[in-house]
């Protein structure tokens, strides 16, 4: 942890896979290897399309009349109402390097600050969460994936219980949700979603529970999740920019620095 900690200093970015030399090499290699995974990629795109279509049909049949009335009532000068929440910009990127066997796994993508990527943006795939941008160069960026022992992600169960997800550094298909109170009934197969507490946009699928365990010592539950993202064959990801994030960071930091 002490040695491998990712510093925010600009200088340390040189020794990362986002630098131009290793980025270019990974790009060239991926140009060759990419071809072999096209069939799998088609399948995942079809699945994602189906998912999005299902969401679209839900919002078409949804009665939006109520919302319209509320919106009309808000005057622009009335500062007591929030008129918009978060604005997200989605950018697509191709994964050119990926690892799952290390204790902190990094993913390199072929987009950098020239394409509007910056540090601490969230990265999701078509099926779930992926990670957070930690290094950026002109044309490449490296992502600290959620398969990392030094990163936690806020999560929400189906009934609204908030907790956090960690990874124990072992298997890429098991994540752990700790400290869930015993009275919360969790069944295997329940989905877990992201919340807006961490850097991810809310309501992104994290995974499904496949095993629950109660710890005798403190009567808290331990949930084992299967991540919905398949980290083994990640090919395309979305980098999510939250337009309101700098403002929120500034506010939260100002609270922290005050004694």
């Amino acid at each position: 942890m002490l040695i491998a900690r990712t510093r925010t200093l600009q200088g340390t970015d040189i020794v990362s896979s986002a630098n131009t030399v290793s980025g270019l090499m990974y790009q060239k290699q991926n140009d060759v290897v990419n071809y072999f995974g096209l069939r799998k990629m088609n399948d995942s795109l079809i699945n994602e399309n189906a998912h999005l279509r299902a969401m679209l049909s839900v919002s078409h049949s949804y009665d939006t009349l109520k919302d319209i009335i509320v919106r009309k009532a808000i005057d622009k000068t009335d500062s007591t109402h929030v008129v918009h929440y978060a604005e997200y910009v989605y950018r697509t990127a191709r994964v050119i390097n990926n690892s799952i066997s290390a204790a902190n796994n990094y993913i390199t993508i072929n987009r950098g600050y020239d394409e509007g990527i910056s540090k601490n943006m969230a990265v999701i795939s078509g099926s779930g969460i992926v990670g957070r941008i930690v290094h950026v160069s002109a044309h490449f960026a490296s992502i600290l994936s959620v398969l990392s022992v030094k990163q936690q992600v806020s999560a929400r169960l189906k009934d609204g219980t908030i907790g956090y997800i960690t990874w124990d550094g072992e298997r890429p298909d098991v994540m752990i949700m700790k400290d869930v109170p015993q009275q919360i009934k969790v069944k295997t197969g329940d989905s877990v979603y992201s919340t807006s507490y961490s850097f991810f946009p809310p309501e992104i699928m994290i995974g499904t529970v496949f095993k629950t365990e109660t710890i005798r010592k403190n009567n808290l539950q331990l949930l084992y999740l299967k991540p919905s993202t398949n980290f083994r064959d990640l090919q395309y990801v979305y980098v999510v920019e939250n337009k309101l994030d700098p403002e929120r960071k500034q506010l939260e930091d100002s609270v922290k620095t005050r004694p």
């Binding site: 040695i3 491998a4 900690r5 990712t6 340390t12 040189i14 020794v15 990362s16 896979s17 630098n19 030399v21 290793s22 090499m25 990974y26 390097n97 690892s99 290390a102 902190n104 990094y106 290094h135 490296s142």
Partner: peptide, 16 residues
Amino acid sequence: GITVDSFENTAGIHAF
């Protein structure tokens, strides 16, 4: 070590 580090994002562990 530092060359391999830069490809793997391991910040000096291989170098050590």
